[in-house]
Structures are given as C-alpha cells and as structure tokens.
C-alpha cells in the first residue's frame, strides 16, 4: 500500500535524467531526527531542537577512533577465557571459540553455530564493513550508493546482536550459582568483548551516511 515516492524538490536537468538535488546543494540544511528542512546556518532544528549540521565534519575521525578501540578490545576478548566452569575441584576455562567447539562436540551444533556467528562472524564482518565504508567515502566515485547504504543499515541493525554471547555467559553464571558443587563465572574476555561490541556500535553510529552519496555526486559527472 505504499504511496508513490515524494517528488524531489528540484526538477531534473534536461538530458541527464532525473537527478536528485541535496539540501546542501539547495542551500538548506536538514534535520536528521525529524527530517525538517531549514535555512542554511540555522543552529538547531525548530521542531525537535536537534543541533543541525549539513555534514558531520568530525564523523570519520570518530568512526576510526571507535573502530580502533573496538578492534583492540576484540583481541583480548578472544585470547582470554570467556567462561570458567568449576565442577567440584576442577576448574575449566574456555575462550569464545573453544566454548563453541565444545558445544559442537557435545552435540549442540546449532547453539555452537549461533555463538560462532554472533561472536566471531558478525564482529569481524562489522569491522570490515565499517572500515570499507569509511575508506570508500574518502575516495569519491567508488562503489554503489545503494549497496553501501544497505550495508550501513545492515551494520547498524545487526551489530547489537553480538551481545548475545555476553547474555548467555551472564545467564549461565547467574543460574549456576549453586556454588557448592558447580560454579560458572565470566572470565576477563566477557568485559573486553562487551566493550568491543559497544565501541563498534559507536563507530557505526558516528558514521554520517550522507558522505556516501556526496562522493557519488562528485565522482560521476
């Protein structure tokens, strides 16, 4: 039931096919929260009070800063134990990957797959995707705008799901505090992993997706 797309504000220049004009080209600035257009130089959105910026000038700096922090914390997250299980007097420690392998060996292949995808697949793919997005906007004319916008949306949507392993560890250890015979405690990797996920989410949120489309405008005639 979707209505036709709203008309772009500026008509196409003849011979070039329909070309969208941006708020910046029109000498306006748009609110990213409530979408309202404002005159150039307006400091805050008149409707929602959000500070207005035609382009986030510090976006890429912040993306790279959070990205580096996320990658750095991802290293100890994988080297240190995520979970240490003590049954009677034997303590057993396992990193993320070791834990998943043990799950698979004990028959729970589906669970092992969820953990591996959420804790290794998604974070690594996300590091690569954010780096590619930030790198590509610094090199105008590269890549497909639609594809990169979709990639950005996927990164924003899926990144949070990496937290699942942290929740599993928290639930397992909270439940099994029968203490006497069995105890399960989160290892140092848990906090490192949580921080890595948080930093990567911040990196994704610092990215100004309008930069993707600016590059295309300049790169192609």
């Amino acid at each position: 039931m979707s209505a036709p797309a709203p008309t772009p504000a500026a008509a196409a220049s003849p011979g070039e096919g329909a070309r969208v004009i941006t708020a910046r080209e029109a000498g306006l600035v748009g609110c990213r929260r409530c979408h309202l257009a404002h005159a150039w130089g307006t400091e805050r959105c008149t409707r929602c009070g959000t500070p207005l910026q035609s382009r986030d000038e510090t976006s890429l700096q912040r993306v790279w800063a959070w990205w580096i922090a996320g990658v750095l914390f991802y290293i100890p997250a994988n080297l240190y134990p995520m979970l240490s299980t003590r049954v009677l007097f034997t303590t057993h420690e396992a990193t993320i990957v070791e834990g998943a392998i043990q799950m698979a060996q004990s028959g729970a292949v589906g669970i092992a797959a969820i953990i591996l995808i959420a804790s290794v697949g998604i974070p690594v793919a996300k590091f690569a995707a954010i780096a590619w997005l930030a790198w590509s906007v610094q090199r105008p004319g590269r890549g497909d705008g639609h594809r990169r916008t979709v990639l950005y949306e996927v990164v924003e949507f899926i990144g949070r799901w990496s937290m699942i392993d942290i929740f599993v560890v928290a639930i397992t250890s909270a439940l099994v505090h029968l203490r006497v015979l069995v105890s399960v405690t989160p290892g140092p990797a848990a906090i490192a992993f949580a921080l890595s996920v948080i930093f990567t989410m911040l990196a994704a949120r610092s990215f100004d997706s309008r930069l993707i489309w600016d590059g295309i405008g300049r790169g192609r005639t």
């Binding site: 008309t7 772009p8 708020a23 029109a26 150039w40 309008r210």
Partner: peptide, 23 residues
C-alpha cells in the same frame, strides 16, 4: 548558486540529504 528555496514544506532525507517536497 541561485537563492535557496523556502525551507517550509520541504523535508530532507536523513541518510542521503536528498531534498523532497513534504509528502
């Protein structure tokens, strides 16, 4: 650059900055 249009009645895409008439 021509004079900027009146921002009233216009909306801006938050993802790509494209300018539209408010639907």
């Amino acid at each position: 650059m021509p004079a900027p249009p009146d921002p009233r009645g216009l909306v801006v895409c938050p993802r790509c900055d494209a300018l539209h008439h408010a639907p």
